[in-house]
């Protein structure tokens, strides 16, 4: 007997048309089709979704928490990317 666990899949749900898929949780499944069924039976029991994605957890490429500052800090000082950086003169509309 080959006692190896079924692989883990991450589950993403689109709750309604117009919204993006959002991470909901995970399930174990032996194959992709089973993963979709398990995601459906586990995470959409209360009409939570209109579309499902499943992806094997080991196929996700993630950033390393050790790189957090190198990855994300450089964006901090570029406040001119945000509209609130700009002062709009009184009386100007539709901008």
């Amino acid at each position: 007997m080959n006692e190896k666990e079924w692989p883990l899949y991450e589950v993403f749900i689109r709750s309604r048309s117009g919204l993006s898929h959002r991470h909901a949780g995970s399930v174990h499944a032996a194959d992709d089709q089973m993963a979709l069924d398990h995601a459906r039976d586990t995470y959409t029991r209360r009409m939570e979704g209109v579309s499902l994605w499943v992806v094997r957890s080991d196929l996700i490429v993630a950033s390393d928490p050790a790189d957090t500052s190198a990855f994300f800090a450089p964006a901090e000082d570029k406040i001119y990317r945000h509209p609130t950086f700009y002062k709009i003169p009184d009386g100007v509309e539709n901008l």
Binding site: W6, V27, H28, A29, D37, D41, T42
Partner: peptide, 8 residues
Amino acid sequence: PELEEELA
């Protein structure tokens, strides 16, 4: 046989 099948 597996937890996910309980839900199914």
